[in-house]
Design a protein around this nucleic acid. Structure first.
Length: 240
DNA sequence: ATCCGGGCCC
DNA sequence: GGGCCGGGAT
């Protein structure tokens, strides 16, 4: 039943895991370096091609990846793992297949909305003439695509240098700085954009590394600070 | 029993 | 803030 998607990684054309810009020695650069030295290549993001990556991002909204894998198995079994197939499949037919991913009625509609856009903009090649901000705005205009999903599709499926902020990133940063409230999506993204090079592979790695950190150390409950690679630079970790 | 997910829309 | 969803971990 397992797909072992975690070791299958699609990379947009032009990207190479070994060619990554220098992250520098600033706050985010040192975070990146510390995480890379501990965990290495996070193999981010799982998927076989650009559409599968994009679909996976919708399916994983507020959902554990293990549940998304089951939904992808169902889609593959039916040959519905392409944007074209999603366009040809009724929402009512699609929903039960992706049930394991949760929120299946909403996500069925979201996949169809995204598949329409995909045909008009990606398959047509028109997306290549869009700037990063224009692309992000188009994605945000789709029903079911918010900031995280828009940035994830832009970066992991389409190779744009947009940093993806998620719950893990907000929780990690709040703990690093000892903040009561989690920093906003936009504030974190702006900070990273100003400090790190606009390199899609670097931003790809950084988010993947934060996820690994958050699953192994910076968990919601009972964080494992003892051997956390960021403990020395973390307000919460330093108090443990 | 409650919490928690790679959120987003209303 | 509530609803969408439901399975696995405290």
């Amino acid at each position: 039943m397992s797909l072992h998607l975690e070791r299958e990684r699609f990379l947009p054309s032009g990207l190479d895991t070994k060619l990554v810009a220098d992250p520098g020695n600033g706050f985010w650069g040192s975070i990146y370096t510390a995480l890379w030295e501990r965990f290495g290549d996070p193999y981010w993001w799982p998927g076989r091609d650009a559409w599968e990556v994009a679909a996976g991002e919708v399916l994983t909204q507020n959902t554990a990846w293990t549940n998304v894998e089951q939904a992808l198995v169902g889609l593959r079994e039916r040959g519905w793992i392409t944007a074209d197939a999603i366009r040809l499949t009724d929402q009512d037919e699609l929903a039960p297949v992706i049930r394991p991913a949760g929120y299946f009625n909403q996500k069925a509609r979201k996949l169809k909305e995204l598949a329409e856009w995909w045909g008009n903009r990606v398959e047509s090649g028109a997306v290549e003439s869009l700037g990063d901000d224009e692309l992000r705005d188009e994605l945000l205009a789709l029903w079911g695509v918010g900031p995280e999903t828009a940035d994830a599709i832009a970066c992991y499926a389409l190779g744009r240098p947009l940093f993806v902020v998620d719950t893990y990133t907000q929780r990690m940063l709040a703990r690093l700085r000892g903040l009561e409230e989690r920093p906003s999506y936009d504030s974190i993204q702006s900070e990273v954009d100003e400090e790190l090079p606009r390199d899609p592979m670097l931003l790809n790695h950084l988010h993947g590394l934060i996820v690994v950190l958050s699953k192994e150390h910076c968990t919601a409950r009972n964080p494992q600070c003892g051997d956390c690679p960021l403990q020395a630079r973390c307000v919460v970790g330093s108090q443990v």
